[in-house]
């Protein structure tokens, strides 16, 4: 599908960039005139994907996280979050709610949130090569008050 507009970002996998990444994607998405709730959902999903790359993909190392954002037809937005980190051995297992390898402080809800807060989720991963998460979300068309 042809993109109406696009945006590309990359940044080192340090945790201060989690807030920057979701704010940047939200600022780009605003042109589709989403509701406050829709924008909040998108920010939450992006935050989960970026956090996964930082704490799982690159674990104790620093690597680059890439975000590719596209505006598609009919108020759809696609957000791709990629890393060249360690990858996931078993994607199906990693996507199960409450599954986590990161200990007590992680809820194991990352993928469940991405799935619930967007309309489409695809995860591609190769151990040793990295992970790509592709999320798509449709914003509701809004009737303008002043016509």
């Amino acid at each position: 599908m042809k993109a109406m507009n696009e945006m590309h970002l990359n940044f080192p996998s340090i945790s201060t960039n989690e807030g920057f990444a979701r704010a940047a994607v939200a600022a780009f998405a605003v042109q589709l005139d989403p509701t406050v709730d829709e924008l909040c959902d998108l920010k939450t999903a992006v935050s989960e994907a970026v956090t996964n790359s930082i704490i799982h993909g690159y674990r104790d190392t620093i690597g680059k996280v890439y975000i590719d954002c596209k505006l598609l037809q009919d108020n759809w937005i696609q957000v791709k979050v990629r890393d060249h980190g360690c990858g996931i051995e078993n994607v199906e297992q990693a996507m199960e709610p409450l599954y986590t390898t990161a200990g007590d402080e992680r809820a194991g809800l990352g993928f469940a949130v991405m799935k619930n807060f967007t309309d489409k989720l695809k995860v591609q991963s190769k151990p040793g090569k990295g992970t790509t998460v592709i999320m798509e979300k449709a914003f509701s068309p809004r009737v303008r008050q002043n016509g």
């Binding site: 979701r22 920010k43 939450t44 989960e48 956090t51 007590d104 402080e105 992680r106 809820a107």
Partner: peptide, 16 residues
């Protein structure tokens, strides 16, 4: 104003 699943982890961890 905003919270992702890290907030859930924060609550669960404090319960522990």
């Amino acid at each position: 104003r905003f919270m992702d699943s890290s907030g859930v982890g924060l609550i669960l961890g404090r319960c522990k």
